[in-house]
């Protein structure tokens, strides 16, 4: 039996208030333990899509998380199920200390002080940032910020981790560390990224969107080998695939 779907989209469309249609009839499912990449050129609608998954933009009919429609009464639960890591870590780290920031989510979930402390320690351990508890987030390097941002959602023990451009702005070592870190997780992953090598390494499935529509939804290796398709949508076939097939 296949694992149950954690995220279901049925014909999701979205238009911004200035009239830009960012999403146009998107449908797919993500099942437990899947690692899915969302690729597409700038402005394709990746970020907009991700913001629908935990109800920042709400669509009760088209989006279901763990069999729940995204409605106001379900929001609190849905937000603890879907951990969201945003494109810009500075927007995500808003508390005065790393500890307070990582504790923010668990405290909002109503957990007790001891449990919160345990979760903060575990989450910071998991991302290799133990010992930074009392640092101010604005004193961290970009790589550290990204890792701490991931810890802030890990501490809520989510079922799905959705990451928007997780490695943009990181140096090669920071990028490598983050990839290894994400590989070590067992949670279901949805990653929006332009870094196709990363996609190839981390995800078994890949969804290509452009202009708010799904163009292709295939196993990552297959989709990323299709140079003409990628080029038609502003992307390039990853180098590692080119060499291996020439």
């Amino acid at each position: 039996m296949r694992p149950e779907p954690l995220i279901e989209l049925h014909g999701l469309s979205f238009t911004y208030s200035d009239g830009t249609q960012a999403l146009d009839g998107i449908s797919f499912q993500i099942r437990r333990s899947e690692r899915v990449a969302l690729i597409g050129p700038n402005g394709a609608g990746k970020s907009t899509l991700i913001l629908h998954l935990n109800g920042i933009y709400r669509n009760a009919t088209a989006v279901r998380v763990c069999e729940m429609p995204v409605t106001k009464p379900n929001l609190a639960e849905i937000r603890s199920l879907v951990g969201m890591v945003f494109q810009n870590a500075d927007d995500q780290l808003f508390m005065p200390t790393v500890f307070d920031d990582v504790a923010f989510g668990p405290l909002n979930m109503g957990l007790g002080a001891d449990e919160v402390r345990r979760r903060v320690t575990d989450a910071l351990d998991a991302v290799g940032m133990a010992g930074l508890e009392n640092k101010a987030p604005y004193h961290l390097s970009s790589g550290q910020k990204r890792a701490v941002a991931i810890a802030t959602v890990l501490a809520m023990d989510p079922q799905v981790l959705a990451l928007d451009e997780p490695v943009s702005g990181l140096d090669p070592r920071g990028r490598r560390r983050l990839i290894e870190l994400l590989k070590s997780f067992e949670v279901t992953l949805l990653i929006a990224s332009h870094d196709l090598e990363l996609v190839l390494e981390l995800c078994e499935r890949c969804i290509l969107i452009d202009n708010g529509r799904i163009i292709a939804d295939f196993p990552a290796r297959e989709l990323l080998s299709d140079a003409p398709l990628l080029e038609a949508h502003g992307l390039e076939k990853p180098w590692s695939l080119r060499r291996s097939q020439e």
Partner: peptide
């Protein structure tokens, strides 16, 4: 605000 809401912010900032 979106980041805060994503982590369950409901109007009160809590710290231990």
């Amino acid at each position: 605000y979106a980041a805060m809401a994503s982590r369950g912010f409901d109007g009160t900032v809590r710290t231990i």
